[in-house]
Amino acid sequence: MYVAVKGGERAIENAHAWLAEERRGDPSVPELSIAQIREQLSLSVNRVMAEGSLYDPDLAALAIKQARGDLIEAVFLIRAYRTTLPRFGASNPVATADMACDRRVSATFKDVPGGQVLGPTFDYTHRLLDFKLAAEGETPPAPQREADPAPVPHVTGFLNQEGLIEEAPHDDTPPPDLTREPLKMPADRSLRLQALSRADEGFTLGLAYSTQRGYGRNHAFVGELRIGAVPVEMEIPELGFAIEIGEITLTECETVNQFTGSKTQAPQFTRGYGLVFGQTERKAISMALVDRALRWEELGEDDTGAPAQDAEFVLYHADNIQATGFLEHIKLPHYVDFQSELELVRKLRRDVQSTQTKEAAE
Results as ranks from 00 to 15, higher is better:
residue 80 A to G: 05
residue 272 G to F: 02
residue 172 D to Q: 07
residue 178 L to N: 00
residue 60 A to L: 07
residue 126 H to Y: 02
residue 106 S to P: 03
residue 162 E to T: 04
residue 165 I to T: 10
residue 113 P to I: 03
residue 38 R to K: 12
residue 250 L to I: 14
residue 320 N to E: 14
residue 18 W to K: 13
residue 46 N to L: 02
residue 173 T to V: 09
residue 231 P to N: 12
residue 336 V to T: 12
residue 356 Q to C: 03
residue 183 L to E: 07
residue 309 Q to T: 07
residue 59 L to S: 08
residue 199 A to F: 05
residue 30 P to K: 07
residue 342 L to D: 08
residue 92 N to M: 14
residue 359 E to I: 15
residue 260 T to P: 01
residue 101 C to G: 06
residue 313 F to M: 05
residue 164 L to K: 14
residue 240 G to R: 07
residue 45 V to G: 04
residue 349 R to I: 08
residue 149 P to Y: 03
residue 266 A to D: 10
residue 149 P to T: 10
residue 12 I to L: 15
residue 138 E to V: 14
residue 259 F to Q: 07
residue 51 E to S: 11
residue 357 T to E: 07
residue 257 N to V: 10
residue 17 A to T: 10
residue 239 L to R: 12
residue 237 P to A: 08
residue 311 A to Q: 10
residue 316 Y to C: 00
residue 261 G to F: 03
residue 323 A to T: 11
residue 143 P to S: 08
residue 258 Q to G: 15
residue 251 T to M: 07
residue 193 L to I: 13
residue 134 A to T: 14
residue 313 F to L: 12
residue 198 R to A: 00
residue 177 D to R: 05
residue 345 V to A: 13
residue 212 Q to A: 13
residue 257 N to H: 08
residue 256 V to L: 12
residue 37 I to Q: 00
residue 174 P to E: 01
residue 341 E to M: 07
residue 280 T to L: 04
residue 178 L to Y: 05
residue 57 P to H: 09
residue 102 D to N: 02
residue 285 I to S: 05
residue 254 E to Q: 13
residue 3 V to A: 14
residue 351 D to E: 10
residue 354 S to I: 02
residue 28 S to P: 01
residue 137 G to C: 00
residue 361 A to R: 12
residue 260 T to I: 06
residue 108 T to E: 06
residue 202 G to M: 11
residue 7 G to Q: 09
residue 301 E to F: 08
residue 13 E to V: 03
residue 302 D to F: 09
residue 78 I to G: 04
residue 183 L to V: 04
residue 322 Q to M: 05
residue 308 A to M: 05
residue 122 F to M: 13
residue 180 R to N: 07
residue 183 L to G: 01
residue 262 S to Y: 06
residue 345 V to L: 13
residue 158 F to W: 08
residue 17 A to I: 05
residue 221 F to M: 13
residue 195 A to C: 15
residue 170 H to V: 14
residue 163 G to S: 02
residue 62 L to A: 11
residue 187 A to N: 11
residue 198 R to E: 05
residue 352 V to L: 14
residue 87 R to T: 14
residue 91 S to F: 06
residue 164 L to W: 13
residue 192 R to G: 01
residue 139 T to H: 05
residue 319 D to S: 12
residue 11 A to H: 08
residue 105 V to H: 09
residue 211 T to W: 01
residue 267 P to T: 08
residue 318 A to V: 03
residue 135 A to C: 07
residue 327 L to T: 12
residue 348 L to H: 05
residue 44 S to I: 01
residue 4 A to E: 15
residue 68 R to V: 09
residue 124 Y to L: 14
residue 304 T to E: 15
residue 45 V to E: 10
residue 72 I to R: 04
residue 75 V to S: 04
residue 117 V to Y: 09
residue 8 G to C: 09
residue 5 V to L: 15
residue 359 E to F: 01
residue 178 L to W: 02
residue 280 T to F: 00
residue 180 R to V: 03
residue 27 P to I: 09
residue 115 G to Y: 11
residue 7 G to H: 03
residue 216 G to T: 02
residue 121 T to S: 15
residue 232 V to D: 02
residue 262 S to T: 15
